[in-house]
């Protein structure tokens, strides 16, 4: 499938904001551009028919992450340097360029986007099974929720534990025994 106009605009927006995030020396500027990037991604996900993911990216990627990043730089001092942009780190660019090229080479063997014969979509025993049986097996209509809390509920258990672990982690890292106050 060739990209339509919306996809092209999103493509350009996401790529530019990502580049700007990398380029800005000022951390506050980078955080704000990164929030715009996350929102662009969220819209991109929605265009690719993933409303749940779009909503999560907007609430967590653009929302909570940005808040925490802002809080962090408020707790620390921004670098008071004059340059607006980062200088280019050539050896890093070389390594990363090689890595990106490898990925691009593998991309040529990917199935086309939206192809109905891609195994991930067509696999009759997993993805198609979820579509056909999710309502019967779990009683909910949103197949994403059915897979998330039903079929792959254990992943979600692990995920909830990761969130809990992050909370415990900040307490240990910052040497406090309370989240707020006794």
């Amino acid at each position: 499938m060739s990209p339509g106009a919306i996809e092209l605009v999103l493509f350009a927006f996401v790529l530019l904001t990502a580049l700007a995030t990398a380029a800005f020396r000022d951390v506050l500027a980078a955080i704000i551009v990164f929030a715009a990037y996350s929102l662009g991604m969220a819209i991109y996900y929605a265009v690719l028919l993933a409303p749940d993911v779009a909503m999560t990216e907007a609430a967590i990627g653009a929302g909570v992450t940005t808040l925490l990043l802002l809080l962090t730089i408020a707790k620390t001092v921004r670098p008071g340097r004059d340059e607006i942009f980062e200088s280019i780190h050539w050896s890093g660019l070389l390594v990363v360029g090689a890595f990106t090229t490898v990925i691009l080479v593998t991309v040529t063997s990917f199935p086309e986007i939206g192809a109905s014969d891609a195994p991930i979509v067509s696999n009759p025993e997993v993805s198609q099974y979820y579509i056909e049986e999710a309502y019967h097996d779990t009683g909910v209509e949103n197949a994403v929720t059915a897979v998330l809390a039903g079929y792959r509920g254990f992943d979600t258990f692990g995920e909830a534990v990761v969130v809990f672990a992050a909370g415990v982690a900040t307490m240990v890292v910052l040497h406090t025994e309370v989240f707020t106050r006794d």
Binding site: A50, V53, T65, A169
Partner: peptide, 22 residues
């Protein structure tokens, strides 16, 4: 569309924010 990769991303987003917070 296939729900499976979407579920994986949902999980991974949350794991990502947890790591970021730490």
């Amino acid at each position: 569309v296939s729900p499976l990769p979407q579920v994986i991303v949902l999980t991974a987003i949350v794991v990502g924010i947890a790591v970021t917070a730490v």
